[in-house]
Simulated assay, not measured.
Amino acid sequence: MQEYGVGVFPSVPTKSAWKKALKKKRVKVNGHLAHTSTFLKGGEKIELSLAEEKPSSKTLIFDLKVLFEDDYLAIIHKPAGILVSGNSFKTIANALPQNLKPSHLSDATKPQPVHRLDYATTGLLLTGKTGASIRKLNQLFKEKKVQKVYYAATIGKMPLSGKITDPIDDKPAESHFETIRSVSSKKYGYLNLVKLDPKTGRRHQLRKHLSTMGNPILGDKTYGKEGFILMGKGLYLHAYSLEFIHPFTGEHLKVTDDLPERFTKIFGEL
């Protein structure tokens, strides 16, 4: 039942949303409450009842820089110091409706981020504006058809390039890196501008992989070296580019987001 429902109702575009609807007892099959284990043979009548959303008494006023937008999707710049989604009021998800144009398509829905960036990470975030778009974009990520490039400032001497394949949470993980520039530093020995190409999408993957190498990201309070934690400047990790084929128009999209000034102060312009 959990697998079948995705895509049937535009208002429930993802597996997690469908699972929540089942858990909240909002789905019936032939008049009976459905569960994640309900088996479908075909020909059943499926009903979805969603509680009316009460309009929020508060509106999040938070300006976002929009780098690409059409009726299907949008790509925005995520600043540091804000969650992408969650139970907090101040999230990118809550700021999207005030920053994006409403979609004119029949399955338009509240804009929704389709991947994650850490609280302290800056850069490009892809969002869907329709039920079909959210499903298609999630599928592109699942099939590894979205190419992502990050830049980080790392500590210590590094090889010119390489591949890191240490498992994360007992799951396969793979990150490729290329050292673009290195500068000497009194405090850190070396600081490096590193281009990163994650082939998998594990939680904190790039931060963990670089820390495992002995080259943690500058400003990383969780995976950094003791005595080398940079306070007050944030995490030097930036989601620089997204590249994929638009799932509805067939357009080849490649969007970039310039390095923040704190990077260029150390390494100069790309």
Rank of each mutant, 00 (worst) to 15 (best):
K25V: 09
R116H: 04
L105M: 05
E53R: 14
Y151L: 00
L126K: 05
H246V: 13
K136P: 00
I46W: 09
K199I: 01
T91L: 07
L270K: 03
E261N: 02
E3M: 01
E44M: 11
L83K: 01
L117K: 00
S211T: 07
R26N: 11
N99D: 06
L124C: 04
K195V: 07
T14K: 11
Q205A: 06
P10D: 07
M1S: 13
F9Q: 15
V146D: 04
S211V: 06
F267D: 09
G214N: 02
R181L: 12
K186V: 11
F89T: 05
P102F: 07
P159K: 15
Q98G: 05
P260Q: 08
V84R: 13
F177D: 02
H176Y: 02
A120K: 04
M1Y: 12
V183C: 11
E47V: 13
T222D: 14
K25E: 15
S11Y: 00
D258M: 06
E143S: 12
V6R: 11
G156L: 03
L218S: 10
H104Y: 08
V8S: 10
N215S: 08
G232E: 10
V8F: 14
S49W: 03
P97H: 08
S106P: 05
A132R: 15
E52P: 10
D166S: 14
G131P: 09
D170T: 10
K136H: 13
P260N: 12
G156W: 06
K15P: 11
V66E: 07
I134L: 05
K110C: 08
L196E: 04
R262Y: 08
T59N: 06
H115S: 05
S133F: 05
G43Y: 07
P260M: 10
D166L: 15
A95S: 09
G227L: 13
E52G: 12
K157M: 07
V194Q: 07
L40N: 12
V114H: 02
K54Y: 00
K41H: 12
E174M: 10
V114R: 08
Y151C: 03
F263R: 09
Q2V: 13
P97Y: 02
I180L: 12
P111N: 11
G234I: 07
I134A: 01
F89H: 03
S182D: 01
T127M: 03
K20L: 10
T109R: 13
P159C: 01
N30P: 13
A152R: 00
L67W: 02
R181Y: 13
S184Q: 14
K129G: 04
K20V: 03
E143Y: 00
N192M: 05
I92R: 03
T212Q: 13
Y236H: 02
F141E: 10
L64Q: 12
Q98C: 07
L117Y: 02
G156T: 08
S11W: 03
Y72M: 09
F177M: 01
K233I: 02
P198Y: 03
S211R: 09
N30H: 12
L33S: 10
T14M: 09
L124Q: 06
E47C: 01
M213T: 02
V6K: 13
R135W: 14
